[in-house]
Computed example of a mutant assay.
Amino acid sequence: MVPVQLTGSRLTVREHHHTPEEVEALHALFGDPEVTRYLPFGPRTPEDCADQLELYVEEALAEPRRVYRLAVALREDPGAAPIGQGSLFLGRHRSAHLGYALRRDAWGLGHGGELARLLCGLAFGPLGVHRLVAVVEVGNPASSRVLTRLGFQLEGRLRHDVCKDGVWSDAFQYSLLSDEWQPSEAGSEAGSGAGG
């Protein structure tokens, strides 16, 4: 495994570590009902988060690696507890799914756009992805804005895409192709030590 290390103007994206501090940080993210409101799962317990981190480490060691779930920290203190997570799920025909989530106290600061940009750089650069897809619940316009600013195109509405707590919700599907990607926009300094 070649560990992923991405650096932006304000964020660092790296591999997760299975430590008590990281379990606590993941629970601060995925244990918050406001954060999971637009995710396909509800709030997770600390035990769930510990199990998830174990899975993330296993996925990182898989050969070939198909799943990248990465911790997001502030660049000024990369050793501090993560403030979010970014993910890429590699599919067939050089495609991938993009996902991201940030702690509530990191919302509205531009971190979502920087994180998504760093993940796009990893996908279209070292990972050689041609088509990147992102799915956003219709009630989450902030995430839709992040994607459209990066050049993602709306492909359509997925009706009853997710059922959570007995309630179905629709989602918008966006995509970005490698020849549409503009890596130099928004001044991100993406450096990568990623391998696929």
Results as ranks from 00 to 15, higher is better:
S169W: 10
V138H: 01
R157C: 11
R145C: 15
V133Q: 15
P141C: 05
S144G: 15
E137V: 12
G166S: 01
E155I: 12
H130V: 00
V133I: 13
A142R: 13
H111Q: 09
V136W: 08
A134K: 00
G121C: 01
V133H: 13
Q173Y: 09
E114V: 04
G125Q: 05
Q153G: 04
L118F: 02
R157D: 00
F172D: 13
S175F: 13
C120D: 09
L154Y: 07
C163H: 10
H111E: 09
F152H: 12
S144F: 15
G112L: 04
G113M: 02
L177D: 05
E155R: 08
G112N: 03
L118S: 02
G166R: 01
H111N: 07
L122K: 01
F124P: 12
A116V: 06
G166M: 02
L132Q: 07
R145Q: 13
E114P: 05
G121E: 01
V135Y: 05
V133T: 13
V146S: 06
E114N: 07
H130I: 02
D170G: 12
L154F: 10
G151P: 12
L177F: 05
L147Y: 11
G166W: 03
Q173W: 10
W168N: 15
F124C: 14
P126Q: 06
G125I: 06
F172V: 14
L150Q: 13
F152N: 13
A142H: 13
Q173V: 12
W168C: 07
K164C: 07
V135Q: 14
G151F: 15
C120K: 08
A142K: 15
V138G: 02
V129W: 01
S144Y: 07
L127A: 12
S175P: 07
A171W: 08
T148S: 10
L147C: 08
V146G: 09
H160K: 15
L132W: 05
F124A: 11
G156W: 09
S143A: 14
R159Q: 06
G121L: 00
D165P: 06
L132D: 05
A142G: 14
G166C: 01
L132P: 09
E114R: 08
D165F: 11
R157H: 05
L176M: 00
V162Q: 04
A134F: 03
Q173K: 15
S143K: 07
Q153V: 10
L150A: 06
C120Q: 06
L119W: 00
L150I: 07
V162S: 05
E137C: 12
F172L: 14
L177T: 15
V136N: 04
F172M: 14
V129N: 00
G139E: 00
S144N: 08
Q153H: 07
Q153L: 08
L122W: 02
R117A: 14
L115F: 01
V138P: 00
D170E: 10
G113A: 03
F172T: 12
A134M: 03
L154A: 14
G121R: 02
L118H: 05
A123Y: 04
L115M: 03
K164L: 11
G156K: 10
